[in-house]
C-alpha cells in the first residue's frame, strides 16, 4: 500500500512521525554516535534546561529494578545560555523538530528560560512541572492544579513557541491537572513523568539512591502510563504525548490507541540505543501490514 502517512500534529507543528526521545533519556546531539540519523525521528526532545548550571544529585543516582529503573539524576545540565550557544546551533542541521524541556524552581525560573528561548530555533517548549528528584523541581507545580494552571499561563504569555506541559503521575486525579493546564493555555500535555519509588539494599540496610527516592521508569510502569494517557485524552481537547515504558512500536501503538497523538521513548534507549528509531520504523510497518493510511486514524481508536 503506497502513501502511508505517519505524520502527526502537535500545536502548530507537523511531525513526520509520532516518535521522539523522552526528555533526559537521550541527548541525541551528543550521544547517538552515528548509530542512526536524528532526522529519522519526528522530534528531538532535549534534557531539562535550567536558567543556570546544575551539577545534579550526589551518586548513586540510578538503580535497576524489575523491568525498569529508578533514577535521581537531579536534572544535571549546562544552563540555558550554554545550551543556546553550543547545542542549539548543532541541532539545527537536522531535518526534525526541536523540543526543549524547561525546568525551574519557581515561576521566574521558567519565564527566564522561556524568554531566552523565544528567538531561537527551538520549535516547541515542554514545561517540566513534574520532576520528583529535586527539591522544588517543578513537582510543587505538578501536583497542585491551581499552581499548574498559573505557571502554564505565565509561560504561555512569554513563549513564542507552542507549549507542552509535562505531567506527574504522582497525583490523585490526572484529569484534574490536565484540565487545569489546558485552561492555562497549554498547547499539549505530555505524560507520564516517572513514578516516585524507593529501593533499599537489605545487605547493607541502606538506601540504594543517595537521594533516597527516585523516579521509576521502564516497562514496569507502562500499564499505568497507558491508563493515565487514556484518562487525560478523554479529559482535554489538546493533544496528548504519551510516554512511560515504551520499548517498541507495539507499546507506542498502545499509547496511540489510548489517545496519544505522539509518543516518547525513554529508558528503553538506555538498553537499546536504537529503540526510538526502531519504534518509528515499526509504526510505519504496522500501518502497511494493516493497510491503514494514516497513523492519525489510530489516535484514541481503542474499542470495547
Amino acid at each position: 500500500m503506497a502513501g502511508i502517512d505517519t505524520s502527526v500534529v502537535i500545536g502548530n507543528l507537523r511531525m513526520k512521525n509520532p516518535v521522539m526521545p523522552a526528555s533526559g533519556a537521550y541527548d541525541y546531539y551528543e550521544n547517538n554516535a552515528g548509530l542512526f540519523p536524528m532526522s529519522d525521528l519526528g522530534a528531538i526532545m532535549l534534557k531539562s534546561i535550567h536558567h543556570d548550571i546544575r551539577p545534579g544529585n550526589k551518586p548513586p543516582r540510578i538503580a535497576e529494578t524489575p523491568s525498569g529503573m529508578l533514577n535521581a539524576i537531579g536534572l544535571m545540565g549546562p544552563g540555558v545560555d550554554t545550551f543556546i550557544e553550543e547545542d542549539l546551533p548543532f541541532l539545527k542541521q537536522y531535518d526534525t523538530k526541536i523540543i526543549v524541556n524547561v525546568c525551574g524552581h519557581c515561576e521566574e525560573d521558567y519565564l527566564t528560560v522561556a524568554e531566552k528561548l523565544a528567538d531561537t530555533c527551538a520549535d516547541m517548549l515542554e514545561i517540566n512541572i513534574s520532576c520528583p528528584n529535586v527539591k522544588e523541581g517543578g513537582i510543587a507545580f505538578g501536583t497542585d492544579p491551581k499552581k499548574a494552571e498559573a505557571v502554564t499561563a505565565a509561560v504561555r504569555k512569554i513563549a513564542r513557541q507552542p507549549v507542552i506541559v509535562k505531567l506527574s503521575p504522582n497525583v490523585t486525579d490526572i484529569r484534574e491537572i490536565a484540565k487545569a493546564v489546558e485552561s492555562g493555555g497549554a498547547d499539549a500535555v505530555s505524560l507520564i513523568n516517572t513514578i516516585t519509588g524507593m529501593k533499599i539494599d537489605v545487605r547493607t540496610r541502606r538506601f540504594v539512591l543517595a537521594n533516597r527516592t527516585g523516579g521509576l521508569s521502564g516497562p514496569a510502569i507502562h500499564p499505568v502510563a497507558v491508563r493515565m494517557v487514556y484518562e487525560a485524552a478523554h479529559a482535554v481537547k489538546i493533544p496528548v504525548i504519551g510516554m512511560g515504558g515504551i520499548t517498541n512500536a507495539y507499546d507506542a501503538l498502545e499509547m496511540i490507541l489510548a489517545g496519544a497523538s505522539a509518543v516518547a521513548v525513554g529508558s528503553a534507549t538506555f538498553r537499546n540505543p536504537l529503540a526510538a528509531a526502531e519504534t518509528a520504523e515499526g509504526i510505519e510497518m504496522y500501518l502497511r501490514e494493516n493497510e491503514i493510511a494514516s497513523v492519525r486514524s489510530l489516535i484514541g481508536a481503542v474499542q470495547e
Binding site: 533519556a25 537521550y26 541527548d27 551528543e30 550521544n31 554516535a33 545534579g56 543516582r61 540510578i62 535497576e64 529503573m69 533514577n71 539524576i73 544535571m76 529508558s267 534507549t269 538506555f270 538498553r271 540505543p273
Partner: peptide
C-alpha cells in the same frame, strides 16, 4: 544504565 553519556547515572 546507558554507557554513552545519556543517562548521567
Amino acid at each position: 544504565a546507558c554507557g554513552i553519556g545519556a543517562c548521567k547515572g
